[in-house]
Amino acid sequence: MTIVVREAEASDEGAWRRLWSGYLGHLDSTVPNEVTAHTWARILDPASPVFCRLAVVDGVVVGFAVCLLHEGSWALTPHCYLEDLFVAPESRGRGAGRALIEDIRALARTKGWDRLYWHTREDNPARRLYDGFAEASGMVVYKLTP
């Protein structure tokens, strides 16, 4: 099985939306349709700091990584926040998640970004994959809703 990782294109919207819906369901979350539409529009906008990489196997999109580039106060070059990573359940364990992270890491090196980072739930089974890249930072995340 060959996994190709590439930038999302306008023609990928249907495949991305199906995976996005699966991702939200996996997280037991919902996002209003207008937010999903806006997220997709930002992914396609070359001026946006949001971008999406897709994992493709035999012409089928099996996973995605949505990232956000942002400035930081501890570096001169951008940070890349891997906000959303999802692989279709039937494709898990075959390297698509690893390929997506490795692809973004290669982009970070090529473009000179300061870091690539993400956070996840403590009980996420994907931590087996993540722990192969780096040790968990031990940071605790707090969320406030204004």
Rank of each mutant, 00 (worst) to 15 (best):
E102N: 01
T39H: 04
Y23F: 15
V140S: 10
R109K: 12
E7S: 14
L85Y: 00
W16F: 14
A108W: 13
A134K: 00
L68C: 06
L144I: 14
R127T: 01
V60T: 08
L19E: 09
A55Y: 03
V31E: 13
F86C: 05
Y117Q: 14
N33R: 11
V57D: 05
I101F: 08
G72Q: 10
R94D: 05
I43L: 11
A108S: 15
R128M: 04
M139G: 00
L19I: 03
E122R: 11
I101G: 11
L54R: 02
D84G: 11
H79C: 13
R115P: 00
P46H: 03
E9N: 15
A108E: 14
A75R: 06
K111N: 08
G72A: 15
V60H: 12
K111A: 14
Y81G: 15
V31M: 13
L54W: 07
S91F: 14
R18C: 00
D84S: 05
K143I: 07
F133G: 05
R105P: 13
P46M: 02
W40I: 01
M139V: 05
C52D: 03
D45E: 08
H38M: 12
G22A: 07
P78E: 11
D84H: 01
G25N: 12
S29A: 15
T77R: 06
H70K: 05
P46G: 02
V5F: 01
V62Y: 03
P89R: 05
N124H: 09
F86W: 12
A108I: 02
S48K: 09
I3D: 04
W118M: 08
P46A: 12
G132F: 03
F51D: 12
G93M: 09
P89E: 07
L85M: 07
I3Y: 08
